[in-house]
């Protein structure tokens, strides 16, 4: 399968990347690992005029420890991050979600920034142009309605990132830099909740870094898939317990990951959150297992993760 035509530019600094972006009036994509972007381009889901390679920007690559935080450049690969001692020692939930992401080869190419910012997915969206043209363009592609929930003027595609929910449970923040300056927001604030435009990040803005507080935590990540590797989560549940309270992140269902907080970790609270997350999950028939089942698994997996943490957390 060949790619559509575009130009290739390599940026050496963030400023240069922003500059190229504006030169091309935003008809541009930033390229890091490419494991999410290239398939989208091959499917003609996007047709940029230029692809801006930001892998060469040194400050986006580094992983450093600073003031009780781990500062992670978005271009750090999932595999590098997984091998970081601080994450292995203090953030078991994040370690497990990194380890569960796709397969080893793709972990070695895929970056944490790209993984967080991956586009939402749907069985009727991630297809060739020919397939989609025959089916008729859906709402996310600029058509009038959703092709799964017929007549709905909304998009029900699934956010399938494994690591954003873990990051949310450890209170990670994202640094965004754009033409108008820089800001730091909670990871959960990256997500718009709209399947058509899943991110709040504005055109041209670059994820510059992820700030992960380094505190002792307990946690685990549970991922529902059909196979043991390569697959995206059909439901993913991340749980981190810190100082007696806990956070639960849910991914794989609907256009954004969700995060829940437990003030105290006890059976009643866990059941409450499991019920609430179950209620919030509104899957539709756009992934390989039935929606009713995936919805059910949200609650089941939440309870299961807490049990696993209780038993020591290992998989």
């Amino acid at each position: 399968m060949i790619l559509p035509k575009f130009e290739y530019k390599k940026a050496r600094t963030i400023e240069e990347a922003l500059e190229i972006y504006s030169q091309y009036n935003g008809e541009a994509f930033y390229l890091a690992g490419g494991t999410d972007l290239v398939p989208l381009l091959k499917h003609r889901l996007f047709n940029p005029k230029v692809v801006i390679d930001i892998k060469g920007i040194e400050e986006l690559k580094t992983i450093t420890k600073k003031g009780g935080n781990l500062l992670v450049g978005p271009n750090a690969t999932l595999y590098e991050l997984k091998g970081t001692p601080e994450i292995q020692e203090k953030l078991p939930c994040l370690f497990q979600s990194l380890d569960a992401t796709s397969c080893e080869t793709l972990q070695m190419r895929g970056t944490i920034g790209g993984n967080i910012m991956q586009n939402t997915r749907c069985l009727q969206y991630n297809k060739s142009l020919e397939w989609r043209t025959a089916r008729g363009f859906c709402y996310k592609m600029g058509g009038k309605t959703c092709n799964v929930v017929l007549n709905a003027k909304a998009c029900y595609s699934n956010y399938c990132g494994d690591n954003a929910p873990s990051l949310m449970t450890v209170d990670a923040k994202a640094r965004i830099v754009g033409p108008t300056g820089e800001k730091t927001i909670k990871v959960e604030k990256l997500f718009s909740g709209d399947g058509k435009e899943p991110f709040t990040v504005k055109p041209g803005e670059i994820l510059k870094g992820i700030i992960i507080p380094l505190k002792e935590t307990k946690g685990a990540y549970e991922k529902l898939t059909v196979r043991g590797s390569i697959d995206y989560p059909l439901v993913g549940v991340a749980v981190t317990i810190k100082d007696g309270s806990a956070k639960v992140g849910v991914t794989g269902i609907g256009p954004c990951p969700r995060v829940y907080e437990l003030k105290e970790v006890n059976e009643k609270e866990i059941n409450n959150i499991a019920d609430k997350a179950y209620e919030d999950a509104k899957p539709v028939l756009n992934a390989v297992l039935t929606p009713a089942y995936r919805k059910k698994m949200v609650g089941v997996l939440i309870k299961r993760v807490f049990k696993r943490i209780e038993k020591g957390g290992s998989r």
């Binding site: 290739y8 390229l31 490419g34 494991t35 080869t105 070695m108």
Partner: peptide
């Protein structure tokens, strides 16, 4: 030295 999927990589990269 690292395995990669060559179908996902642009040669200019």
């Amino acid at each position: 030295g690292t395995p990669v999927r060559s179908c996902l990589i642009l040669t200019p990269e």
